[in-house]
Design a protein around this nucleic acid. Structure first.
Length: 602
RNA sequence: GGUCCUGUAGCUCAGCUGGAUAGAGCACCUGCCUUCUAAGCAGGCGGUCGUUGGUUCGAAUCCAACCGGGAUCACCA
């Protein structure tokens, strides 16, 4: 994981920790490890900004909690300028940080993007999407894609170079099913002739295949076959299997049809990706990568990393608490693992500077990736420790699991359209946009609608299974993307009104004290770089999403009760404008990290 | 059965490197648009943090067992 530059660690802690060490040395004669100190934000009901719990240090101090906290507090106040005052409640030492510190911090936040870390020099590859070319993208893909896209941006913000890649599963029995059904029932239909998006057209014949297949099974069972036999012998399935063999034998007609239908699918996917606002640097087609890995496995066999049994090549991971696994069948053909081994190796060859590879794949493949990473480690690749499976949980519907065969999938295009329409409906009802042209409105509603879906999917811890509530996902109020966008738009509105008035110049220490609402906002801003670091190291966009919400919520509280434009004291007014601007900038960058755009007005 | 993930308010989720009366949003109820955008703000209602033990001055948080939900363990992908 990218390591944080010291300057982006919590700057307050880097001031407090040495002082605390000195305090314990001077007061109690003990040298404490810098990591011994745990900080927490002071609860709002007490006065202060940072709280240190002294319970862990009672043995060192030899005193009770309150005298210990009192002594440390006095020492800090005497030796650290940023410590304005303190109070002790039970074993809690609440420290109030001086306004000057917050003002310095705000000045810095205004001058540079604190959510852009210095370069680490590392190159990271993030794989996401990996669709099959036999049906359109659905809600599950959306979680995958938004996660991968967001993690890529978070890693970039944390100072890494990112290569976005997609694996397209363009080969196999699934696409042959669509092809067979199209041949039989398509009557030459094309996206142009049918008016259907390419992936939808191909998907239609995949569904058609399944319908006919089921009918054939029923007929066979009726004629006395067992269910198992019927499932294996249905003519249309045999036809699809035959087609796969022809494909593998490079049959020109089959290959031509395959290219044509895959092409339709790619066009459809690209349209969906465009609307989602995601893109890739490189595509890997399974039709090309599925031959990879065989030589690597054979080499591993030679080196004694793998072994042979019944003519097949195996790996034994029982020492790692896993099982044995076949890597090459006895007929010499590959399994899925084989090509994943080969593809990983190829990627590190193609990108010589690559230091990390992240696979955004659902948690049903946890075991697969565990095995894959162990195998690559056993093969001796130095980069094997830098492979990560960004494992995410399934998206459930209120009705239960999504089943493509049962038609309960939520289609990606449909969902985006629905939420954009919802944004339009509420937006027009509010009638704040009367001076917007129709294209401007459309662009805005698009931005709002997509923010709603993206934020909805990203605010949940990736590894957790989540419930997709259609009504909540198009909600534009409360803990949502549009709420954050709205706050941003309000800030921009404020700033628009003072354009040309010059910016806040915080050269002098003001004579007024910061208000609690102002401090609350400042503290959220202050924490943000740390949140970005956490988010990058845990590959967890939800941390960014939730902190952004907390920031704008604090800002809204401030906005509601503290005047900005109306403030008569020029120094205060300028400060509040600078504060607003910093919130706007960080919000915009944080939302960028989530792949969400923010509007100037809404 | 083995392994992994998960269980917090009616619903959806935060909090989990142990710390002060467990937080949001939605829903429901009350206020606030003659002051910077009410897609907002303030307040109310609502919780045996799955259960039982253990470690600890202190456990939603760590450990164990159990219960519930899910995934996975093919010469499938």
């Amino acid at each position: 994981m990218p390591t944080l530059q010291p300057m982006f660690q919590d700057r307050l802690q880097s001031l407090l920790i040495p002082a605390l060490q000195q305090a314990f040395k001077a007061l109690f004669g003990h040298d404490l490890d810098p990591k011994a100190f745990a900080f927490q934000s002071t609860r709002p009901e007490f006065e202060g900004d940072v709280t240190i719990n002294v319970f862990p240090f009672l043995k060192v101090s030899g005193k009770g909690p309150e005298p210990t906290a009192q002594a440390v507090g006095e020492y800090l106040q005497a030796h650290l300028e940023v410590v304005e005052c303190f109070n002790v409640v039970k074993g809690f030492l609440n420290i109030r940080i001086a306004d000057s510190y917050w003002l310095d911090f705000l000045r810095e936040a205004g001058q540079q993007d604190l959510l852009q870390f210095p370069t680490t020099g590392k190159k990271v590859m993030v794989e996401y999407a990996s669709p099959n070319t036999n049906k359109p993208l659905h809600l599950g893909h959306m979680r995958n894609i938004f996660l991968g896209h967001s993690v890529s941006r978070i890693l970039e913000s944390a100072g890494n170079e990112v290569v976005r890649v997609q694996v397209i599963n363009d080969r196999g029995i699934h696409i042959c099913k669509s092809m067979v059904a199209w041949q039989h029932f398509g009557a030459g239909a094309t996206p142009e002739s049918s008016g259907l998006k390419g992936d939808k057209l191909v998907g239609k014949y995949y569904v058609e295949f399944d319908r006919v297949y089921k009918k054939e099974i029923e007929a066979l069972i009726a004629s006395g076959k067992s269910k198992d036999d019927a499932e294996k012998e249905a003519p249309i399935l045999l036809e699809a299997q035959a087609m796969l063999l022809k494909w593998e034998a490079n049959d020109p007609d089959v290959r031509a049809l395959w290219s044509k239908m895959n092409g339709w699918c790619f066009d459809g996917f690209n349209a969906t990706y465009d609307r989602m606002g995601v893109a890739f640097d490189k595509l890997y087609y399974e039709s090309q990568t599925y031959v990879l890995g065989k030589n690597d496995v054979l080499e591993g066999l030679k080196k004694g990393v793998f072994y042979e049994k019944d003519g097949a090549v195996w790996v034994d991971n029982s020492k790692e608490g896993l099982d044995e696994k076949v890597l090459l069948r006895s007929d010499g053909t590959s399994v899925y693992m084989t090509q994943d081994i080969g593809t990983a190796i190829k990627r590190f060859e193609e990108y010589p500077g690559l230091s990390q590879l992240i696979y955004t794949v659902g948690n049903e493949q946890d075991y697969h990736f565990k095995v894959l990473f162990i195998i690559l480690k056993k093969l001796g690749f130095s980069w094997a420790d830098e492979l990560h499976h960004l494992s995410y949980g399934m998206v459930d519907l209120p009705s239960g699991k999504m089943k493509s065969r049962e038609g309960t999938v939520v289609d990606a295009d449909d969902l985006m359209e629905e939420v954009v329409q919802e944004a339009r409906a509420s937006g027009e009802q509010l009638s704040k946009l009367d001076d917007f042209s129709e294209p401007e409105k459309s662009a805005l509603f698009e931005m709002i609608g997509l923010a709603a879906v993206k934020y909805y999917l990203l605010k949940v811890d990736p590894k957790k299974r989540m419930l997709f509530d259609p009504a909540a996902s198009i909600d534009l109020q409360g803990h949502t993307g549009p709420f954050i966008q709205y706050t941003y738009a309000r800030i921009k509105s404020l700033l628009r009104k003072v354009e040309g008035m010059g910016t806040w110049s915080p050269e002098h220490v003001p004579q007024w004290a910061l208000l609690p609402e102002e401090r609350a906002v400042l503290k959220h801003l202050h924490q943000f770089p740390h949140v970005l670091h956490e988010s990058a190291s845990k590959l967890d966009p939800a941390l960014m999403a939730n902190h952004t919400y907390e920031l704008v919520k604090a800002y809204n509280g401030f906005y509601q009760s503290v005047p900005v434009m109306k403030e008569e004291d020029g120094s205060k007014k300028n400060f509040r404008l600078a504060l607003s601007m910093a919130v706007g900038q960080m919000t915009k960058k944080a939302m960028w990290c989530l792949g969400i755009e923010v509007p100037e007005r809404m």
